[in-house]
Design a protein around this nucleic acid. Structure first.
Length: 435
DNA sequence: TCTGGGGTCCTAGGACCC
DNA sequence: TCTGGGGTCCTAGGACCC
């Protein structure tokens, strides 16, 4: 009879995270339905066609930076026939869902971290197959099924997995997959990675780190933890620990409930009248209330803000916001709409050229949980739940089917989206035809 | 003329209480 | 009325992420 060895700590599979990240995601989505643009430089612009938020490899090679204002790179665009697209979030969200569903079918646990990237828990998988091989399987399947290229980084902590992914993107020789399980490889990559590429280290922090002589990821990993904690915060200390291989950030298996909902837009061109801003704010609060109900929450606080263009120094500047606390949380659009319009009027000042406004909902409660006081005389809107359900259902199939009168006032604030691609995957009339 | 939008977390400082 | 320590709660602002 063979003897069964007891499981020791040494045999416990080491923790392993993977980070799967889509390459140039928005640009790749646009190209999916335009194979004729395959090797052309292409960029996707932010709302109002303001700045570049995604670039194809060819556009990056031209030196177009992330966030570059479109009007500043007009010459480059003309010279190299750069294809510019307005952002088409309906398309990107749909493609993202397909990518995530594909990944979910292949890994034990997936945490969708953003529209174009996800963490997977590969603890245990590592002992069964070669991690690099598995990374390639993930990559190949997503590319075959959805048509989107990804890079895969694998390591014992999330921060190192991010770093591995950075390596997979940066160095083509890796074939888009980097296994950073071994400490020697971790240190090798960290030694040649600037500290500002580390997840959690932004512009401000890297500047301060540089002045302390910390320029590479490795130097941050080797820095004295107490000093880091004292000079910065627990956040950066955690980052340093993660770089050392100590896992501080775990998988988030359930999406945490939202703390706040913001809907705001820059206007297509400056507006002055209260009626214009109220029409914009009406649209924003209707959307915010819809999101709120989707989250299954009620809000007790609502904020409205508006401002002029801070970039235009020759214009008179004004910026203000006002927050109102409701006696009882609500998820009824009618109630929030009336409130938002009143708040809007309260902070509006004539004589300014406004370029942005927005609304925010916060202080959330699950419906029915809020304890009303004995003396509250709050009269809930009649048939609120049923009416909102009808509203949401009608608008689910086609946005704007049912709307409030105040949403359709002035339209001079509307966004600029002059180069919008069709909704290839989410609107029947836009589905591409195959001949 | 033209510079995105939507989030989270942490910290410092003030108010207030015992 | 003053003093000091210690705790909690709230808010504004700063930093980060994609």
């Amino acid at each position: 009879m063979g003897c069964v060895k007891p499981i020791t700590a040494a045999q416990k599979p080491a923790r392993c995270f993977a980070l799967i990240d889509c390459n140039n995601f928005y640009a790749s989505c646009e190209r999916l339905f335009r194979p004729d643009l395959k090797f052309k430089p292409l960029i996707v612009a932010s709302n109002n066609d303001g700045c570049a938020v995604a670039r194809s490899a060819e556009a990056k090679a031209l030196g177009i930076k992330m966030g570059a204002p479109i009007f500043k790179i007009q010459d480059l665009i003309r010279q190299h026939d750069v294809q510019v697209f307005s952002s088409n979030y309906a398309l990107y969200a749909d493609i993202s869902n397909r990518v995530m569903t594909t990944l979910e079918s292949m890994v034990p646990q997936l945490e969708v971290y953003s529209i174009d990237e996800a963490f997977a828990d590969l603890t245990g998988v590592a002992s069964a197959v070669s991690l690099t091989d598995f990374g390639h399987e993930l990559r190949d399947k997503v590319e075959r099924w959805v048509g989107i290229r990804t890079c895969v980084g694998m390591a014992p902590t999330k921060t190192l997995a991010k770093l591995a992914n950075y390596g997979a993107k940066k160095y083509p020789k890796t074939g888009g997959v980097v296994d950073l399980t071994s400490q020697a490889r971790q240190r090798k990559l960290m030694a040649i990675t600037p500290v500002d590429e580390v997840w959690g280290v932004g512009r401000k922090l890297s500047k301060r780190l540089n002045t302390m002589g910390i320029e590479t990821a490795l130097q941050l990993a080797d820095a004295d933890l107490k000093t880091i904690r004292k000079a910065f915060s627990v956040v950066l200390e955690r980052t340093a620990r993660e770089l050392r291989g100590e896992s501080c950030l775990s998988m988030q298996d359930v999406t945490p409930t939202k703390q706040q909902i913001v809907v705001s837009r820059s206007f297509g061109s400056p507006v002055e009248g209260l009626d214009s801003i109220q029409s914009a704010v009406a649209t924003f609060i209707v959307r915010a209330a819809e999101k709120l109900r989707y989250e299954g929450q009620s809000a007790k606080q609502a904020t409205v803000f508006m401002r002029t263009n801070p970039f235009n120094t020759s214009d008179a500047q004004y910026s203000n916001s006002v927050t109102y606390e409701l006696p009882v949380p609500t998820q009824d659009t009618r109630e929030l709409l009336t409130l938002a319009q009143a708040l809007c009027a309260r902070i509006y000042r004539p004589g300014f050229r406004y370029t942005k406004a927005g609304v925010m909902l916060s202080d959330f409660y699950q419906p029915g949980v809020f304890q009303t006081s004995l003396f509250d005389v709050h009269e809930p809107k009649p048939k609120s739940k049923a009416l909102m359900a009808v509203l949401d259902n009608l608008n689910k199939t086609k946005t704007g089917t049912l709307y409030f009168a105040s949403q359709h006032g002035k339209t001079d604030w509307h966004m600029k989206r002059e180069r919008l691609s069709p909704a290839y995957t989410t609107r029947w009339s836009d589905i591409p035809k195959a001949r």
